[in-house]
Design a protein around this nucleic acid. Structure first.
Lengths: 364, 364
DNA sequence: TTGAAAGCGCTAACAA
DNA sequence: TTGTTAGCGCTTTCAA
């Protein structure tokens, strides 16, 4: 800290209070006006300042350890430096963190700073959070949820620009960005189809949601795209977690499926456990694909799980771009971000049919 | 939106630009001075304002839909409303989210707002993040890591108050708050001891870290507190994830341990998988305890894992309190937060010895 | 019990 | 090429 701080910066510096090197101090030190300093700092285009003066100013800035006051700048210029992000679950899920990360990276790139508020689903907290952001003059607000779902847009959001992230308006339209469930499920199913599987079971969730309907559709579209006839018997339902996957194992075995597409990685993990107990090997006997790419799980099951990723980072980033009008999308559009395939070790070529053709109810 | 916004709020409201109801507008509308309005808004103690005036002001505020400008307030009063939180991994881990949550809750309680920056370990980003926070006049900075470790304190942190969260200064002392590894491991080990186990294996991590040394010590202290003689043969090492736990299973079985304390939940999960494959039941044959309480995993293994929680939420909250001087701890102190026991289904009473006493190398 | 006025640190015309 | 001067929206003495 021999940067020259304690030198002559301290005016009010009384033990506790630190710092207080203002533009004016720099101006005085450099023997120029504050306007000049302001100009070189922001190095404004049109400004014609002598190179010598510039250098003198820069020197003074360094010498005094000057830091611009972003708040004063905002107040004066009227251009905000904040983007608000309200999330309903940064704490309880690994997913929200990715949204925050994506949003932050993009925000920084655009010269903004993220104001994050975690509501954990509490409406009161949410209202306060939005109010707080409004009072801090945010450029706009990203309203995000940790799982893809419809939401009632809080009225106070209308006081600023906003975009919904990982959710969409249930009661009205609003600009939003969500994962492409259909494409994701299509991709997952194709991971199996491409390896020769045709008898593919789909363990969907019991919970009504965009994920449930979207993934079912993606699964069906993939089958028909590959000219594989759908068999209702292959459609299973389960509670969307390890317990659900574990419980449905017997049914899966009964379908005679050679490949299974699970609603999410947790279900896949439960299924894996159950199959192991029954001596069924994966991917030897059965290939499995998950959804979400929840790393803590999918990267470490045995075998490591082939799955499809939920693009949370992208959602956050695209959210910011939409907010700032950087994406050329119509207002109130719902943009869909695709889910990438993450192929690991739970998928393999279909072995020579162990089950005679006759068991195959409806041929292809 | 019939709150009166579009009414007469719009001055500069030109389609895009919103809002601009200032203190002055309110004052004018209420027929008082700005000073008066300011006083009733913050309802200052010493201010003696007539109840009628107060009501008139409040009415005007409501009618105009006035929102105070927090930035102007900060600038004018000199009292910051921000607390910065720089984290090295909100994105990649479920843990950091809890720190954010704890910090935010406590910050709000104290009237502050959290400015979050995720660095993902990038030093450049970190430097920028701190600079950004300094420029935004933060009251102080919480510097956090996603796993407990020593850190080199970035020099620029000295320009403000700061506290280290989930980490501590490697090169110098600084106020910090970390989990109590020793107590945590002690607690975990006791979960086994209390149920009669004496032959308890400890699968530690291979990575040198406060966790490694602290947990070993806690394990040893628990044994001796219960007058159980330590057996070096029970000390195993493994890579700290599922693969590590899976790989070490054979060795664990060889020790003849009836209880196993794993360095973390992921190791426990891997071990569980391996034991299942070998037909060893948990907790029937062997009891297992993890560490971290990483919910996605621990709450859903079969059986659900008994473990010890890492107090991330608390770390964040205490961090804020330390920063604000709300905790009466000496400056530069390292405070330890304890790790709570989370007992689930992987621990059971020691069954009647299936193995003759003689196998027990050294008696108690 | 209230109002006037001087800033907080910075930007942005407008002069010079 | 640089300086002067109003503010941005709010708080805070000091007077009235």
């Amino acid at each position: 800290m021999e940067t020259g701080k304690g030198k002559d910066a301290g005016r009010d510096t009384g033990g506790v209070g630190r710092r207080l090197v203002t533009l004016r101090d720099v101006a005085k030190a450099a023997g120029v006006s504050t306007a000049t300093v302001s100009l070189v700092i922001n190095d404004k285009k049109g400004a014609r300042i002598g190179e010598d003066t510039r250098e003198r100013v820069r020197a003074a800035i360094r010498r005094l350890g000057y830091r611009p006051n972003a708040l004063a700048k905002t107040l004066s210029s009227g251009t905000s430096t904040f983007i608000g992000l309200v999330a309903d679950g940064v704490a309880t899920t690994p997913f929200a963190g990715q949204i925050v990360h994506g949003a932050q990276d993009e925000a920084w790139k655009q010269g903004y700073v993220l104001l994050v508020a975690n509501t954990e689903g509490d409406e009161g907290v949410e209202k306060d959070a939005i109010a707080m952001m409004l009072e801090h003059q945010v450029r706009g607000i990203l309203y995000s949820t940790w799982y893809h779902r419809p939401v009632e847009v809080p009225p106070s959001l209308d006081e600023t620009d906003f975009v919904l992230v990982n959710c969409f308006g249930s009661d009205r339209t609003a600009t939003a960005v969500v994962p492409d469930e259909v494409q994701g499920a299509f991709t997952a199913t194709e991971m199996l189809l491409r390896r020769g599987h045709e008898r593919i079971a789909f363990i969907n969730t019991t919970t009504p949601s965009p994920a449930r309907t979207g993934r079912l559709r993606g699964y069906q579209e993939a089958l028909s795209a590959h000219a594989v006839v759908a068999d209702e018997a292959l459609l299973l339902d389960a509670q969307p977690d390890q317990e659900g996957g574990y419980a449905v194992a017997e049914q899966v075995l009964h379908t005679g499926a050679t490949g299974v597409f699970c609603h999410n990685d947790r279900v896949a993990m439960g299924l894996l456990d159950a199959l192991r107990e029954r001596g069924v090997t994966v991917p030897g006997d059965i290939s499995i694909v998950g959804f979400d790419n929840q790393e803590v799980i999918s990267a470490h099951t045995r075998p490591a799980l082939s799955t499809v990723g939920l693009p949370h980072y992208e959602l956050g980033a695209v959210g910011v771009r939409l907010l700032l009008g950087l994406e050329d999308t119509p207002r109130d559009a719902v943009v869909r971000v695709s889910c990438p395939a993450v192929e690991r070790d739970s998928t393999a070529e279909l072995p020579q049919p162990r089950i005679p053709q006759t068991t195959h109810p409806r041929g292809r």
